[in-house]
């Protein structure tokens, strides 16, 4: 069998071993805290507190995870996972729909103030959630959307980044395609639905992954607007589990919750990895 050459430079002997050694060491350093969290979620409370912390999983896996999922500390983790899921999917899907439509409008229609609108959208890139958090809170509170999914999702749904990305993608599509569709008799929305949407699918997938994780990891906003524990999302929920004052922390359950919080983003990334990379790398034309 022919030897495979994978890089510009063929590595052999010591070089190969050294690079792999470094890589493995790097992975271990990054992975170690996660491993510790996993170990901690499978042992009992006294075992964690007792100085040399165990490095190998214990036998309490089922008990700890059942406890976390169904009773938790304040709320069952299952509820928080569901809340996070609704918020992350809501934000990702909402952002994609809105930015697809606004990019479509900006690229394919000539209307007064088109450029102004584009630059307004573009300007919001400079305003992260944290900057506008107080006025946004005021508005959401005024609408009575505290402690609701709509309150969690809507303020985060407009996305300059995604609009900009789709705009750039639409600009690479040859004009003739739109003209051919026009000659074929497609009205604008038909063109959008039949031609643009299928052509954007890899970009949509890539964005979905990014936006899902963005939504999932939201911390500050849910912390502000959800006071009812049943509306807690998991990322903020972990923090809420930490004891205040003299309470005793139930570390195994907290660690089990942390591990559980990591699972959905990992599943999304892995299951959409192929589409994700294609979306970032090639431009299908």
């Amino acid at each position: 069998m022919a030897r495979e050459i994978t890089g510009m430079v063929e590595r052999r002997g010591m070089g190969l071993w050294l690079t792999h050694l470094l890589m493995i060491a790097g992975v271990l350093v990054i992975f170690f805290p996660i491993w510790l969290a996993f170990v901690a979620s499978t042992v009992t409370q006294p075992e964690i507190v007792k100085p040399p912390m165990p490095l190998w999983p214990g036998d309490r896996f089922v008990e700890n995870y059942t406890a976390a999922l169904f009773s938790g500390v304040n709320v069952p983790v299952l509820t928080m996972l569901a809340n996070s899921m609704v918020m992350a999917i809501g934000i990702a899907v909402g952002k994609i729909i809105i930015s697809l439509l606004s990019a479509f409008a900006i690229v394919y229609f000539r209307f007064p103030g088109r450029n102004i609108f584009f630059w307004l959208i573009f300007l919001t890139l400079m305003l992260p959630v944290e900057v506008r958090i107080v006025p946004t809170y005021q508005v959401i509170a005024g609408f009575g959307m505290l402690n609701s999914y709509s309150g969690l999702i809507f303020p985060l749904i407009a996305s300059a980044t995604a609009t900009f990305l789709f705009r750039q993608f639409f600009l690479t599509i040859p004009d003739e395609l739109a003209e051919a569709a026009r000659v074929d008799g497609a009205r604008p929305m038909r063109f959008f639905w039949d031609i643009l949407l299928p052509m954007s699918r890899t970009n949509i997938a890539a964005l979905f992954v990014i936006l899902f994780i963005y939504g999932w990891n939201q911390y500050l906003w849910p912390l502000l607007i959800t006071t009812d524990p049943s509306m807690n999302t998991i990322v903020m929920g972990i923090k809420q589990m930490f004891p205040s004052g003299d309470d005793v922390a139930d570390w195994p359950v907290i660690m089990a919750t942390s591990i559980l919080a990591m699972v959905p983003p990992v599943v999304v990334v892995i299951s959409m990895q192929k589409l994700f990379i294609r979306g970032l790398v090639d431009s299908e034309k």
Binding site: P174, E176, L177, E179, A180, A181, V183, D194, M199, K285
Partner: peptide, 14 residues
């Protein structure tokens, strides 16, 4: 009631 053939063909890629 016309049909047009474009220079770059403008076929729908998907």
């Amino acid at each position: 009631d016309i049909a047009m053939v474009f220079q770059n063909y403008a076929l729908y890629p998907h």
